[in-house]
Simulated scan of single mutants.
Amino acid sequence: MMKGLKKWRLFSLLAVMTVFLSACGEDYISTLKPAGAVGKEQLNLLLFSITIMALVVIVVSFLYLYAFVKFRRSKQGENHMPKQVEGSHTLEVIWTVIPIILLLILAVPTLISTYKLADVKAMDEVDEEGNKSALTVNVTAKLYWWEFEYPEQGIVTAQELVVPTGEKVYFNLKAADVKHSFWIPSIGGKMDTNVENVNKFYLQFDEESKDLEEGVFFGKCAELCGPSHALMDFKVKTLAPEEFENWVASMQATEGQTASADSADLGEATFANSCLACHAVSGVGASGAMGPNLTTFGDRNRVAGVLEHNKESLEKWITDPESVKPGNLMTGKYGELSEEEISAVADYIMSLSVEE
């Protein structure tokens, strides 16, 4: 008897914890607090499906309890024989037709949403001047960082996706090495990035991120891709359309910007000699760089996607990247830099910014 009571106490505790934990989640990363039209539609579809399934559970549970109480042997007697319904066409029709109806109720809105959210024809539409009318971003997933190219604007950035609010943003998704998966939980469902083919979909960002606790939405890799999969984050900064245009103009103004090996600044000279081969400091260019574009590094809120955005974290990353992200491609390349050079190059990288 006591063992049974303990089990019920544990069950009750778990039930209470489930209720409280279901309310957990921050706006910048929770699928249950969508900040975009796609996420809201997917959440509504999820809630609709849960409602249908809950209704089935309630009805079946009621019938079970009703039969359990009404036809118990102590009430009907030892010699009572229930009515035999084997071969009843009525019952067979009921338990065949009802599930079909429920499946259709679930399938119809699911299929409508699936085809609607997969419609990317507007990606190729052009205006009277021949320019694409929709914003398109080419996303390339790499071990263990993200590259974002805006082909119509001629700019490239990394680790931080910047998009306007109130309009559909279309994505071409691919991977440079192994399979990854692009996911912004607060905005919409994930989509795989493959090496062999390009996947396409769109998202809509309805809220500006500046009012969030960290000023950005969080993006994740949702496909196990290696030892640092859990650390393969990116951030999403959503701006009002006019602010986005200002950001694009600021990025375009960095065309030709580079670091000089002859600079009197030790940080810039060290960067030019040791880092520039892999990391660009101009937002204008093509995708495909060995390392992340650092043009907007000073505007980010994380180092390597996961560390606090400060000089100490950056020095740690430069000194020993393997301790932060095992298996990353920067590992073991900076052992010859002195502490003075590491400090100077960290100051230089932290100074890279396009935002006022």
Rank of each mutant, 00 (worst) to 15 (best):
M2A: 12
K3P: 00
L13H: 13
L13N: 11
G25M: 00
I29W: 12
T31A: 13
K33M: 07
K33Q: 11
A37M: 12
K40P: 02
L46R: 09
L47I: 12
S49H: 08
M53K: 12
V57F: 13
F62E: 01
Y66Q: 07
F71M: 03
R72M: 06
E78G: 02
H80D: 09
P82M: 03
P82H: 10
V85F: 12
S88A: 04
H89I: 15
H89K: 13
L91W: 10
T96E: 09
T96M: 11
V97L: 15
I98V: 15
P99S: 13
I101Q: 12
L104C: 15
T110L: 06
L111D: 06
T114S: 09
L117S: 06
M123Q: 14
V126E: 05
E128D: 14
G130S: 08
N131F: 14
L135W: 00
T140Q: 10
K142H: 13
Y144M: 04
E147M: 07
E149G: 01
E149D: 08
P151H: 06
P164H: 10
E167C: 03
V169N: 09
Y170Q: 15
F171W: 14
K174E: 11
A175D: 08
K179D: 08
H180R: 07
S181N: 10
I184G: 02
G188A: 13
T193D: 08
N194G: 00
N197K: 15
V198D: 09
E208R: 08
D211P: 03
D211C: 01
E213V: 11
E214C: 00
F218W: 12
G219S: 07
S228W: 00
M232N: 15
V236E: 04
V236L: 04
P241V: 09
P241I: 10
E242G: 04
N246E: 15
V248I: 14
S250F: 01
A253E: 13
E255I: 02
G256W: 07
S260Q: 09
A261K: 12
N273K: 14
A280Y: 04
V281A: 01
V284S: 02
V284K: 02
S287Q: 08
G288K: 04
A289I: 00
M290G: 11
L294V: 04
D299L: 05
N301V: 11
E315R: 14
I318Q: 03
T319P: 00
K325G: 01
K325V: 02
P326E: 06
G327T: 01
G327L: 01
N328K: 01
L329F: 12
L337D: 06
S343A: 15
D347W: 10
Y348F: 15
Y348P: 09
M350Q: 10
